[in-house]
Design a protein around this nucleic acid. Structure first.
Length: 104
RNA sequence: GCGGGAAGGAAAGAUGUCUGCUGUGCCUUGGCACAGAGGAAAGUCCGGACACCUUGGGCAGGAUACUUCCUAACGGGAAGCUGCAGCAAUGCAGAGCCAGCUCCACAGAAACAAACCGCGUAGUCCCAUGGGGGCUGCGCAAGGGUGAAAUGGUGGUGUAAGAGACCACCGGUACCGCUGGUGACAGCGGUAGCCAGGAAUGCCUUAUCCGGUGCAAUGCCAAAUAGGAAAGCUAUGGUUAAGCCCAAACCGCUUUCGGGUAGGCAGCUUGAGCCAAAGCGCGAGUUUUGGCCCAGAGGGAUAGACAUCGGUUCCGGCUUGUCCGGGAUUACAGAAUCCGGCUUAUUGACUUCCCGCGAAC
RNA sequence: GUCCCUGUAGCUCAGCUGGAUAGAGUGGCACCCUCCGAAGGUGAAGGUCAGGCGUUCGAAUCGCCUCAGGGACG
């Protein structure tokens, strides 16, 4: 079961993250954690306007629910979207997320 | 048919499968039922409701500006008035330079109460028949030239030369009277030479309105703790949420350092609400009656993927049309306390009305 | 939520109490200098003054409305 990170303080912990993975449109710092998997999503205003940011967040959430076999079993991760991520199609997005999760 | 102009509404998708989210209700406590973004939710350009701030007053400051009306209010809207643009439909603009100050570059004599050239004339000197020229002084706004702008135009009287100095007509301005209109104003008649500028989206004047801060307002519960330290101002002082002052009230106030907590509930959606009919009003609107309940998140839900059918457009086929196949595209954009406007963004279209020109009848 | 600032040559900025031609540095271009470069010198080009409307005789400058970018506070 995925736990979504919601508090501001927990997001600030990722400033000190040692390990990080990156692809063309995403940057994901990770932290070790004893309990199960925890995911956070960060999309800044540089990515697009409010409609595009909301749609990208919903798509990432939906992909994580549909592909639990690709995700790690434990650890904390913050998915930060970079410029251009809102223009990706569904196939491109899932391919990039697959690549990101395998490199963890 | 061509060209132009104005107004308006609706928001381009529909269905199914799988996987999910938020709220409310129900009970067997994890299932079911119902509901779940917009016309602009946006920009934050205005106006309010609501909440808090010991109190009262003044100045300062801000906003608006033809008239009447609508509205809770408005810088919004409706109907008109005047001016300008346009053949017209129509569009755009709107207090006051007879209170004071300031500015009007360059050019020009002069940019506000003006003499450079010029037109006249008195004295004097020179050449000297008439007359011409120089210097000093005075009168003159007709002509020239400059400029965006130089004191209304035409004709006459008048004069040394001229001039609204005076006269006639025309144009403007101010005032008076009558008529129409709630009013801005319009029409008619009369009087006055009054006719010496422009800029208040320059300072400003006049009239009207405005206290400040904002739902992270504010209230309650829970948790935590050190009512701590230093510096400054101190009763002719300080504070009273704001630039200043006064009154009244109160006795501490300001800055820095250090420590703690950063959870929950309410506010939070029944409202200047929406729909329909009837009445009133040219209209913006408003009154009555009946019906309805229509998002409430809090790292922020309202969806993601796939399939089918559509819309628009492009390419190909031939069986040329309510055809078949393939590709692209399917706007702008996401509630955050809530309303009333304004402004901006917007795909493909649609509806209604008006004006001009041309043709036919 | 409440506010503030900025927009001028490819880049960094002046000019902002209206006055005509919008400047400076730097970069790019051409030429000179040198055996060749660098440095230096000379010359020309390059602008919708973010956009629109208005005020004025005249607007980069004043007023209003938009657009874009950046920032502050709790």
């Amino acid at each position: 079961m995925i736990r979504w990170i919601k508090s501001h303080q927990e997001y600030m912990d990722f400033m000190q993250a040692a390990k990080a993975c990156r692809t063309e449109h995403f940057y994901a710092p990770t932290l070790p954690s004893p309990e199960g998997l925890a995911l956070g999503i960060t999309i800044s205003k540089k990515v697009g306007k409010a409609v595009q940011r909301n749609r990208l967040k919903r798509r990432i959430k939906a992909w994580c629910i549909m592909h639990p076999e690709d995700l790690a079993t434990q650890g904390r991760m913050n998915l930060i979207a970079r410029k251009g991520a809102a223009e990706l199609s569904w196939e491109q997005l899932s391919a990039e997320l697959c690549q990101l999760m395998r490199s963890v």
